[in-house]
């Protein structure tokens, strides 16, 4: 343990534009193993785009992404924009970074259990029986053991999101990316999802969480990043940043939530 720890995720200077609009204007982030980082920001601040750039669901125009010491190779195409040099590498790195979406995005033609084993069996090419056993354990953990043979359409939003979290865990990822996991949920269903996420944080999982849940950011995460118009406006440990931040904008932002 003499070596300096390699960050689980290291992102350097990400830029991203949609047309004329520059959504991300140079964002960097280092997440060590076990870090839980909440990313806050008003809608349009670029926080979801930033998360989607990390596993290349959006291709950044500029910047460098390193996962567990492995940098994603990028090249420029003829038009001069950045693109991944090696699709296989991208797919492999994606399989190490599981993502949980705002709108769950469970595959609607598969049951919950089938959703869970899809990636492990077909992407990681692991034996099916083993994957099923693990999937069942994960479903137990998120409280959906009895719903294993349900189709997503037959579950509540909260159940779907818990299933989606279990699906992400089934990939045995190095880190979890959460993209506003509770924003599409009815208020009474938010709690059950947050409970699962809190348990994951306590297990020591590496998590990047784009969220509007102030209580989660404040009480569960190790670090809070506040984005404003595509740049990091405030960054720090929650106990510091929530009590005395230099940023007027951040104080205003949390003020809106406390009101």
């Amino acid at each position: 343990m003499a070596d300096a720890p390699v960050p689980a995720i290291s992102v350097r200077n990400i830029h991203k534009s949609f047309g004329q609009h520059e959504v991300l204007r140079g964002i960097s982030l280092d997440a060590n193993d076990g870090d839980v980082i909440s990313i806050l920001g008003a809608s349009g601040s670029g926080k979801s785009t930033f998360l989607r750039c990390i596993n290349l669901l959006e291709t950044p125009d500029e910047g460098e992404i390193t996962v567990a010491g492995e940098t994603i190779a990028m090249k420029r195409n003829r038009a001069g924009s950045l693109m991944p040099a090696d699709r296989k590498q991208v797919d492999r790195i994606r399989s190490e970074l599981a993502m949980v979406f705002q709108s769950f995005n469970l595959w609607s033609h598969m049951t919950v259990l089938q959703n869970l084993i899809e990636g492990p069996v077909h992407v990681l090419k692991r034996p099916k029986a083993e994957c099923i056993a693990e999937a069942e354990a994960l479903l137990e953990k998120v409280g959906l053991a009895e719903r294993r043979n349900y189709y997503p359409a037959h579950l509540s939003g909260g159940q779907q999101q818990r299933a989606a979290i279990a699906r992400a865990l089934a990939m045995q990822p190095k880190a979890l990316l959460f993209d506003e996991p509770t924003s599409a949920l009815d208020p009474e269903l938010v709690g059950e999802v947050l409970k699962v996420m809190r348990a994951l944080a306590e297990e020591g999982r590496t998590m990047l969480v784009v969220t509007h849940e102030m209580a989660f950011a404040r009480n569960v995460s190790d670090r809070v990043m506040f984005l404003h118009e595509g740049v990091v406006e405030a960054d720090g440990a929650p106990e510091d940043i929530f009590t005395n931040s230099d940023s007027e904008r951040f104080r205003q932002f949390i003020g809106n939530f406390q009101a």
């Binding site: 797919d91 994606r94 599981a98 993502m99 979406f101 995005n105 469970l106 989606a164 699906r167």
Partner: peptide
């Protein structure tokens, strides 16, 4: 087909062919 489900497939590292076949 919901775009999000395709995103989900990409996000776990499914390649184009696998995505087409399975999702």
């Amino acid at each position: 087909v919901a775009r999000g489900e395709i995103d989900a497939a990409r996000s776990i590292g499914m390649g184009t062919l696998l995505r087409f076949r399975r999702i």
